[in-house]
């Protein structure tokens, strides 16, 4: 019997704290809100961006970490909208806390619709990484993560931060590299709103962590860059 009484990880948190907690677990309302949001996103990307996804067959069963180049707010939405079934429901975008969880309404939208988890720049503690790793493995989640740490202002892919390797080290969880094309042109950091334009998402073969963290970080960046070259 694998069923046991196990309270929600966020039980006892006040409503506002719960939205901003890495321990937040969704109920029926959260699942329905996120499903509706992803449906709207798919419609939006089909109509305004003619989104083309290749390599879906590379996606393993959850848990896994989806990484990509980051040049636009559209990136996380493209990845979330492209996941289907259980992987889509398990997907959590790791998002900048200052940007998405600053206000109460913003936090509610980020938590319920986007299903984001806040990462506070410069304030991430060892306990946060531990909680993220624990949930990734035990709750069989899918994380959407941009290892560059911030949106590229030029559209060129930057260096990868070491957090990705710290997150998956020792877990055996696969990292799936992706390349998003056209998002920076459609909605660069300098623009207030997106404009229509063709989007392409290429999903590569999953990577398992081998060697030291620096080597793995470099391997992940190379895998994303290789997808860019495979146009």
């Amino acid at each position: 019997m694998d069923w046991k009484l196990r309270p929600a990880r966020d039980l006892g948190l006040a409503p506002g704290d719960r939205l901003r907690s890495l321990a937040r677990e969704r109920g029926l309302f959260g699942v329905a809100a996120n499903a509706a949001w992803r449906w709207l996103l798919r419609l939006y990307f089909r109509v305004f961006h003619r989104l083309e996804v290749t390599g879906r067959e590379n996606l393993p069963a959850a848990p896994f970490v989806l990484i990509a180049n980051h040049g636009s707010h559209l990136d996380a939405l493209v990845l979330a909208a492209s996941l289907r079934g259980e992987a889509g429901r398990a997907a959590h975008a790791l998002a900048a806390g200052e940007v998405f969880f600053g206000s109460g309404a913003g936090a509610a939208f980020a938590a319920y619709a986007i299903n984001a988890m806040p990462i506070w720049r410069g304030k991430t503690q060892r306990g946060d990484i531990r909680m993220l790793r624990e949930r990734l493995v035990e709750d069989r989640l899918v994380y959407i993560l941009f290892p560059e740490g911030t949106r590229s202002r030029s559209g060129e892919m930057g260096e990868f931060q070491p957090g990705l390797a710290a997150l998956v080290a020792g877990t055996g969880v696969a990292v799936v590299p992706c390349w998003i094309e056209g998002a920076h042109a459609a909605w660069p950091p300098q623009r207030r709103w997106p404009r229509p334009g063709k989007l392409r998402l290429r999903i590569g073969a999953p990577l398992s962590m081998e060697g030291d963290r620096a080597a793995f970080t470099a391997a992940c960046r190379a895998a994303v860059a290789a997808l860019a070259a495979a146009r």
Partner: peptide
Amino acid sequence: YARATGLFRDR
């Protein structure tokens, strides 16, 4: 009740 018992995970 569902969040306390964990039943909420069984959607």
